[in-house]
Design a protein around this nucleic acid. Sequence first.
DNA 1: CCTCTGTCTTGATGTGTATCGAATCAGAGG
DNA 2: CCTCTGATTCGATACACATCAAGACAGAGG
Lengths: 122, 122
Amino acid sequence: MSNQEVPFDAAAPCCPPLVQRRVSGETAAALAPAFKALGDPVRLRLMSMIASAEGGEVCVCDLTPEFDLTGPTISHHLKTLREAGLVDAQRRGTWVYYRARREVLRQLAGLLSVESVPVSRV
Amino acid sequence: MSNQEVPFDAAAPCCPPLVQRRVSGETAAALAPAFKALGDPVRLRLMSMIASAEGGEVCVCDLTPEFDLTGPTISHHLKTLREAGLVDAQRRGTWVYYRARREVLRQLAGLLSVESVPVSRV
DNA sequence: CCTCTGTCTTGATGTGTATCGAATCAGAGG
DNA sequence: CCTCTGATTCGATACACATCAAGACAGAGG
């Protein structure tokens, strides 16, 4: 559990939109794992369930029954999200609670944002 | 080439932020491949190079030399981006040009956006 | 201390993927 | 028609990954 996987410079301002400047090799290497973690339907749903949870957190016991998958498999996916820096876990008594790291989501959204950046030609 | 891989309802309004509502299984299945495609450092850089290109498009011949990878490998990654619906390709004479599908990027950014959505508790 | 429940770890297995070299295809220009 | 260059496809290989069953671990409550 440890709650300290954190492969992210969560503080780092990190990156103008990918549409504005070429992302560097380092930036790409740092951020790709997060997209990769979201690149599985199960994990994308888990991420959403966690991020949209009332109170900002969810018990694993509430996540698992939502899928036709075994406990270990869900646990594995949660670990992947943790290692990608997208969520934090905390044990309280028998149960483990997950919460989203919104700064990280915001970074990723910012990187993909297109907004009013027009094609420089046309 | 065909330029018509399009696994995307590019038109679909598609999805309030993942932080607001749980994404459905279908939505997750539809969008996860795009994140997966971005989940590789090489493809993330390619995506950025394409999306930030002057004139809105880049020649493969300008992309390949930027990496320490063979042509076939770059071609493979570009195909992955195409099949994920993130880019379009067009052949003109000897060269092939790629351009970003900004609506799709905007969708993905919207899904991850956190904005001013506060934790519903606290 | 024992047991029960919830969660994670381990080990095994089948599938997917990143990469390359070789071969192929698509135009351009003799 | 031949050849040259740019790009993709094919085949092979090595590695990563999703999944499960079985086992281990962590608290709670006898």
